[in-house]
Write a protein that binds this DNA or RNA. Structure first.
Lengths: 323, 323
DNA sequence: CTGTTAGCGCGTTCAG
DNA sequence: CTGAACGCGCTAACAG
């Protein structure tokens, strides 16, 4: 591996001159600089990141921690993050799993963006306490070195419930996954509140655990209890997909007997028949804001927690109640 | 940041003793070792990756390069890679975009797995030439430091065409995306060959460019030319989805007038009505094999190029031709 | 056998 | 433009 030493020898100058030349410092005459650069290129010189990181005490790499690498949300989110980071000369790596956490304390990355419930808040706080900068997308965490960029789950859930009320629905189910993510939990709270506040809704049913891949138990229950038109608010679109699947073989029809609304507006939602009504938000913007906030913290600028706005997308899965 | 120096001072020993203790060397008495470890833990000591990397000349991190972070294929693929790497004490980072290429020559990673057509073969060969180890999943590239793990596209395409012939189809379209990936190209070749070899097929039509998001032009063309039952082989499922969308508003029906078969068996395919017939393969295994091969190269073991087997999944989108 | 000293690896940076 | 120190952990060689 060719190092600045080799270049220095070749060019007949000291290593520091080479370093200055490579970094575009004015401390070297343009001629020498050009000569050194030419030699460096000819020798296929590439700096060793470890050495640079060691001295500079920064890597200009940001780590994004995800629960897994699948899922529709991540694509746009990461795109948004990358866009902002690259613009500021930072790079992005995506990590998953407990092992990879070491990247932060070991200083392989300058900061972290976390969307991973399996990354415990205690651990995050430890890192924050040591001076590492973190942006969380999936929890509330107060620390000078931690910033939150959260979805406005409350607004979304409220929007959905009010829409259903407007359509004349008075019998509600709220369906959540078994994982119990922060987002789901927050949405559930908002649903409950909104329905209770309306006063007019006949009753609300909260559903506990349920797996998309397993039998779609929530659907099972709604079916077994079916008497009259019911509205089902799936707290994320994945649940809604599971619901659709279960409904497919029955006599009940979505948008007529059972009205469904989701959350997230995943791509798959567009292909469901009838088209799913859901809550939309810009995943890309979410990522962009998170990245921006993190860079600001790193630069020592004060930041405030942010919230990502959501909107209602009307499909055909929830319609007016026919008397 | 606490370093081994701090621990050494605290423990009243030299830094090398600390280093030995931390690395479990027998050169330190168990008592001293235990004491040092306790102090290290108490001081929240975490080694600096840059320093370690600099000395060891390895990071035990593998980089996976993808065109983007979306796409259904990646989830399982990365899972397969991670599983194998973690087992061997390696970590995985996912990168995208030209900027991130530097990770390899700068030695932030010990090796690369590439599934990114925008990463040019020339560049890859340069890195290989410098001694970097690479596994490619999306091209043929011959170099001692490069290994290929490719899908058996030929077998898949042949399987699909033979199935369609068996169902009585004699009029073929093969639809590919505009990007012209290696996989698509290979599949297309195989389709052409198989159809030509059969001799009985009336004719084959190769379609050039087409975007899922734009108007689905390929579908447009098939529609405008529609006379009798036609078979459409979408060279990846995304195209098939676009095709379904375009068909939705017409009088023609998939599985009756137009018969469709895809490639990749993405999750979305399960939700299409009628269910898409497609070519399946284990994305997880693909990743696992790639990771295994890379580790083998890194260990200096000789490896041979590998191929991932594919199978036909029969749905309802391609049926027997009714006379 | 235990533990120490000394120097390496590579780029950055300050005093000269 | 240069010499030398520095960052931090690893390890060979050496002294106790």
């Amino acid at each position: 591996m060719v190092s600045i030493k080799d270049i220095a020898r070749e060019a007949g100058v000291s290593i520091s001159t080479v370093s200055y030349a490579l970094n575009g410092s004015t401390k070297v005459t343009p001629e020498t600089c050009a000569r050194i650069l030419a030699i460096a290129k000819e020798m296929n010189y590439v700096p060793n990141a470890a050495a640079r990181n060691l001295k500079k005490r920064e890597t200009r790499i940001i780590g994004v921690f995800l629960t897994d690498f699948s899922g529709d949300v991540y694509g746009d989110l990461l795109y948004g993050i990358k866009e902002i980071l690259n613009r500021k000369g930072y790079d992005l790596i995506v990590c998953s799993g407990k092992q990879a956490h070491r990247m932060l304390p070991e200083r392989m990355i300058d900061g972290a963006i976390v969307l991973d419930q399996t990354f415990s808040s205690e651990e995050l706080l430890q890192y924050a306490e040591r001076g590492h900068k973190i942006v969380v997308l999936d929890r509330e965490l107060n620390h000078p070195n931690v910033n939150q960029v959260l979805l406005d789950n409350k607004a979304g859930a409220t929007l959905a419930v009010e829409y259903l009320l407007e359509l004349g629905h008075r019998r509600f189910y709220a369906v959540t996954g078994p994982e119990g993510s922060y987002d789901s939990w927050q949405r559930m709270q908002a649903v409950r509140q909104t329905v209770e506040r309306s006063g007019t809704a006949e009753f609300i049913e909260i559903q506990g655990n349920f797996e998309k891949s397993g039998g779609e138990q929530a659907a099972e229950r709604v079916l077994s209890e079916f008497k009259a038109t019911a509205a089902v608010f799936c707290l994320n679109d994945e649940m809604a997909v599971g619901f659709y699947n279960r409904m497919a073989g029955t006599e009940l029809e979505i948008g007529r007997d059972i009205h469904v609304i989701g959350f997230d507006n995943i791509e798959l939602a567009h292909y469901l028949q009838p088209r799913l009504s859901t809550i939309d938000y810009s995943k890309r913007k979410w990522g962009a804001v998170a990245a921006g906030q993190l860079l600001d913290i790193l630069a020592g600028q004060p930041v405030e927690h942010e919230r990502i706005y959501v909107t209602l997308v009307k499909g055909d899965s929830a319609r007016k109640v026919q008397p």
